[in-house]
């Protein structure tokens, strides 16, 4: 969490403030307005999301200050479903222009309680030009990706995603299995990327509840403390490939599919640390496929 921008705390507080404001407004309205007219005046989800554009204005400032974000280029693109099939597992694929030497990628889900899903640091020359992960989406929201090149230029792209309730959704469909298998990892090498001889593709899976902490214990009425992976380092042959500082918006069983450069002779080494300080570490021998 230490490398997350300092503005995060403030933003988080601002987000948590919202429901109570909404409740106050709703309570005030309920004295004089019937629920029928209230429903009729409710904006459509798209209108609500458009009106909430200020969320990004604030987030942008918290994350990047008054630095200029370059829009409308092909340097960074985001593939995400327009409507999520399951708000707790929303696949996101980020593509980066190989010519631009992108070193840092920030994935922001504007309307989530903790908007920064993850910040990825890409090693120089590692060949990470495509990166997929899965996130929770708690409301109809814009998703922003900001890519920072080695020369400091910031490129941004966004997409609107219709999904709701992913953060409050309980982590596991089968909590017993999830607890038993926590920390188990899998790494798959998909081999060469078609049409790019120097580029290969791999996928890392980590068994972890990546619990968002937004569920209430019904007995104590306290929120279950968040339990998630904060730091991830992926190396190959002793050289860094990418690292991530993650938040609670990364889905249960964090999953990262990425391209990398070079032949497959070198083993991968993965180290993940969670909020309880547990360290999960594993070396994956070469398995050419």
């Amino acid at each position: 969490m230490k490398t997350l921008p300092s503005g995060m705390g403030r933003n988080l507080a601002a987000r948590w403030g919202r429901p109570s404001q909404v409740a106050l407004v709703a309570a005030a309205l309920s004295f004089g307005v019937t629920s029928v007219s209230l429903a009729a005046s409710e904006p459509s989800p798209e209108e609500a999301a458009a009106a909430a554009d200020s969320a990004w204005t604030d987030l942008k400032f918290d994350l990047f200050g008054d630095r200029k974000l370059v829009e409308g280029t092909d340097v960074v693109s985001l593939e995400a479903p327009k409507r999520a099939a399951d708000p707790a597992i929303v696949p996101m694929t980020i593509r980066l222009d190989p010519e631009k030497d992108i070193r840092k990628v920030t994935l922001v889900i504007d309307e989530n309680p903790s908007p920064v899903a993850g910040t990825f640091t890409l090693a120089k020359g590692a060949g990470v030009t495509e990166l997929s992960t899965r996130v929770r989406v708690n409301a109809y929201t814009d998703v922003h990706v900001v890519a920072e090149a080695a020369d400091g230029t910031l490129y941004v792209t966004k997409q609107f995603v219709k999904a709701a309730g992913g953060c409050a959704a309980p982590a596991a469909k089968d909590p017993e299995v999830a607890a038993r298998e926590m920390g188990r990892m899998k790494l798959r090498d998909f081999g060469e990327v078609e049409g790019a001889a120097d580029r290969r593709e791999a996928q890392l899976q980590i068994r972890h509840p990546n619990n968002s902490g937004l569920q209430k214990d019904q007995v104590t009425l306290l929120y279950i403390p968040a339990h998630f992976i904060t730091d991830l380092d992926v190396e190959r042959g002793g050289q860094p490939v990418f690292s991530m500082t993650g938040g609670i918006s990364i889905s249960e069983d964090p999953n990262f599919r990425f391209t990398y450069e070079g032949d497959s002779a070198e083993p991968f080494h993965v180290k993940a640390v969670d909020t309880e300080g547990k360290v999960f570490e594993e070396t994956f021998p070469v398995t050419a496929s």
Binding site: P170, L214, Q215
Partner: peptide, 22 residues
């Protein structure tokens, strides 16, 4: 009981959407 407890919040929210608040 534990499954329902873990989901009560999200069920309340999603059912408000689907059934309507009343």
């Amino acid at each position: 009981a534990p499954a329902l407890a873990a989901r009560a919040e999200s069920y309340r929210a999603s059912m408000r959407e689907q059934l309507g608040p009343e």
